[in-house]
Amino acid sequence: MIAVIDYEVGNLFSLKASLEKIGADSVLTRDPAVIHAADAIILPGVGAFGQAADKLRAFGLDQVILREASDGKPILGICLGMQLLFEKSYEYGEHQGLGLLPGYIGSLREDLPNPDSIVPHMGWNELNFRREEDREKWLPQGKTSIYTYFVHSFYAKECDDVLVADAEYEGIRVPGIVGKDKIWGMQFHPEKSGTDGLSLLRRFIEMTEKPEVV
């Protein structure tokens, strides 16, 4: 069972549907007991970082997630949910994140070399994996690269230690997949990235499955 964290941020229709499509049981919840009983956590989210972080705290979910993370429960943050895993964000002010991954969230607009570049970074972009073993871990056999669907105006910075794959946009390398141990994040929307996106979600689910006792 996957606990999809319900903190009133964003539209979860496609995420729920995509988990159903790949045969993963999921429940939309903010109940600490249900989250504790789940095999893994997905933290979704769209919108502004500050508001989302406030909502997580208002529901007490920041502490719940930190506790589950320290127990070793697999967690996947998607889009803003990924950004919340980092230490802080400078999206309209300065906001504290969960601090599960090292690095911070900054503005694409401020960093793009060409002021005429379009923000948000929206559309299908190619993921470049840093290490061969990560490519093999995440991509279906035989695939050397995939495109995923991005929609965002802020991005993860100074996170080289946890960078798995990035995408080039107008001269900036945008982290696409980040993670270490059992904490993962995807800046793009796997639930909107076609068949390849579904296969990334499936890989995450497979990684969370407990090895069978022989």
Partner: peptide, 11 residues
């Protein structure tokens, strides 16, 4: 829209 969104996972 719902029927399509349950089957097809692109924007």
């Amino acid at each position: 829209v719902s029927d399509v969104a349950r089957e097809v996972f692109i924007p």
